[in-house]
Computed example of a mutant assay.
Amino acid sequence: MTRRGRKLAWIGAAVGALLTAGLIVLVVFVDLETANQVAGIVGAIVSLAALGVSVYALLQPLRPDATGPVNAAEGTRSVVAGRDITGRVSTGDGDRRATSPGPASPAPPDSGPVPGGTTRASGDRSVAAGRDISGDVATGDSNTGGSS
């Protein structure tokens, strides 16, 4: 929760406490019928305020951390994978290496994205994986053989 959110929550709690104290004072010093009518009006106002807050919350854009894992290839020609890289990745020009050393191994049973993880490839031609890189990765130009 943000600082602003905490502040608003405390203000809401204080207003609620003051309203409750005010209704108790009405019951004790006036009469139950008047307190009942005031409580009905206060309840209607609070429910309308809650409706407004709900609509406001629904119209806010989703934050990346609210949607799950974030995988971002931010650099020029960068590559990112939320889990594993098991094949060939090349971010350079003129990659003349032979074909991949073999078929990619099958994904493990838990092949979904890394829970709550953030994987970023932020530099130019960078490569990032949420877990393992078991394939061939080349980030330079004119690669002619072997693993880089």
Rank of each mutant, 00 (worst) to 15 (best):
V114N: 04
V55K: 05
R63I: 03
R131C: 10
S126H: 02
G52T: 06
M1D: 15
P106V: 11
P106S: 12
T34D: 07
P113K: 05
A9F: 05
V70F: 06
T91D: 04
V38I: 15
P109T: 03
V38L: 07
P101A: 06
A17T: 13
E33K: 15
L8V: 03
F29E: 13
P115M: 00
E33Q: 13
G117I: 03
P113W: 14
E33F: 15
R4K: 13
V70N: 01
S90C: 15
G68S: 08
A129Y: 02
V80M: 02
A9M: 12
L23F: 09
A35L: 07
V27E: 10
R4H: 11
G102W: 05
A81H: 13
A66P: 04
R97F: 01
A44I: 15
D84F: 02
I45W: 13
A81Y: 05
A98K: 06
R4V: 11
A129W: 01
P109L: 07
T76G: 02
T67M: 15
G52F: 03
R6E: 13
V114D: 03
N71S: 12
V46S: 02
P61D: 13
L48H: 04
G82K: 13
E33V: 14
T2G: 08
P103Q: 14
L8Q: 08
T119V: 14
A98D: 02
G116V: 03
A44E: 02
G5S: 12
P103E: 15
G102E: 11
A66C: 08
G112W: 11
G68D: 02
I11W: 08
D84K: 03
S105M: 01
R3E: 12
A17C: 03
S105F: 10
L26T: 09
T34S: 09
R131K: 00
S111M: 13
A121D: 00
P109N: 09
V46D: 06
T34H: 06
R97A: 03
A128F: 02
I45Y: 07
I45T: 00
P61Q: 10
V127L: 03
R4P: 12
T2R: 13
D132G: 10
I24A: 14
D65S: 10
S126F: 02
T119G: 07
G12K: 00
A13P: 03
R6A: 12
R77N: 10
R120V: 15
V38Y: 11
V27F: 06
G117A: 07
P103D: 14
A128C: 05
S111A: 08
L51P: 04
T86H: 04
K7I: 03
G94A: 07
L59P: 00
A73C: 04
G75P: 12
A49M: 15
V89F: 06
R4C: 04
T119F: 02
A13Y: 00
P108H: 10
S90W: 03
A50D: 14
P61A: 15
L58V: 14
I11L: 13
P64C: 09
D110M: 04
A57Y: 06
T2F: 04
V55Q: 00
S54C: 05
G102Q: 08
D132T: 06
W10M: 11
A39M: 08
Q37C: 04
L19N: 12
A98V: 06
A57T: 08
R120S: 04
L8F: 00
P115S: 01
